[in-house]
Design a protein around this nucleic acid. Structure first.
Lengths: 188, 188
DNA sequence: CACTTCCATTAACAAATGATAAAATCGTAT
DNA sequence: ATACGATTTTATCATTTGTTAATGGAAGTG
């Protein structure tokens, strides 16, 4: 399962794969559980085996802002990009019941240093993280809300019927009322 | 000069600094020059010593979308985050005459592998890149255009009188006409 | 079953932003 | 100084999005 996820990003040899798999631990989280908390210590990398997650922040008005969604069989944002001095700078929540594989981030860093394949894999994940952000940024800056919704549907086909629309609305940068309007608009 | 820039992000020892400085080459680019071109080979890391730059992309409508601005004495987006298979995925342009220090990206990667301080420095730059994107994303998703303009002014105090407003407007996700309205609004 | 709570939808109005066109301003070259 | 071209501002109208409030439905609870 992890093999499948890794190979979908950057294929690596059987050996390298074994190095990673020897470090893996499995964890389950229930629907609604926030398993990476902002301002709390966290030292893990995550593979999302089953279920759906989001990352989010609280804005100055106290509202939850969805930053990203994560589909089944994907990799959550790399440790380096969401952690400062071993303290998380963002929240991750299970939107459904989930199964995750975790690796100690320091041990994975060591693997990246020692093993070129794993390093390339890690850097690919990193770059993908960035380019997704750039793409979302471009969307927010230059698409209408309707276009952003259509793009969201392509990227996360099942989510609209699975999770609260409030989460989707804040991801799209609109109110949930606007989202509802767009939905009925697109339905006819 | 490079010392100053590095230490402002993540202070490192004299030794590590020398390792970096031994690899540096200086380059100048004139106002308007696009010195990293999308779909072109690029293998460098960049320190911006003097002048101002932007990164940008062309959207499907053929319009330039400004992704980020870079102030004097800062570090441009790390190689890994803007490059795939040694080919750039984004453009960088000098908005004024600029002086840059460059390092071969592969050699810098080697330094990161061999030297813990430099690795920490590199990862800090990477994380900063990400968190700036997240912050901008939140801004686009949950602030009004007027609030985004005010934030832009805090972050880039001189830019509004220095570069074409079209560049700023696309960065803020509005038309240049809206930008003009907001300017006159805020002026009274 | 009645009741609550949470979400999603709808309506009506206000505010913000976009599109188009026309005027004003600025910098630069002649 | 003048003229040109590019940029910025202003004006007008259309569209999109936000705000507030009311309504309806689904799921869970006593």
């Amino acid at each position: 399962m992890i093999k499948e996820i890794i190979n979908s990003k950057y294929p690596i040899s059987k050996n390298s794969l074994n190095e990673i798999e020897s470090l893996v631990e499995l964890v389950d989280y229930g629907k609604g559980e926030t398993f990476i908390k902002k301002n709390r210590r966290n030292l893990k990398e995550y593979f999302l085996l089953e279920g759906v997650c989001k990352s989010y922040l609280i804005n100055p008005e106290g509202e939850e802002i969805t930053i990203s969604f994560f589909n089944e069989k994907s990799i959550l944002s790399p440790y380096t990009t969401r952690t400062q001095d071993e303290i998380s700078v963002i929240n991750f929540q299970a939107l459904t019941n989930t199964k995750l594989a975790t690796i100690d981030a320091k041990e994975f860093e060591r693997l990246m240093i020692d093993n070129l394949e794993i390093r390339n894999f890690g850097n690919t994940v990193l770059r993908n993280e960035l380019s997704q952000k750039v793409e979302k940024e471009i969307g927010l800056a230059s698409l209408t809300a309707k276009e952003r919704l259509l793009k969201f549907r392509e990227q996360f086909p099942m989510l609209e019927n699975l999770i609260p629309h409030t989460d989707i609305a804040s991801y799209l940068g609109i109110t949930n009322i606007s989202l509802s309007r767009l939905r009925s608009d697109l339905a006819r």
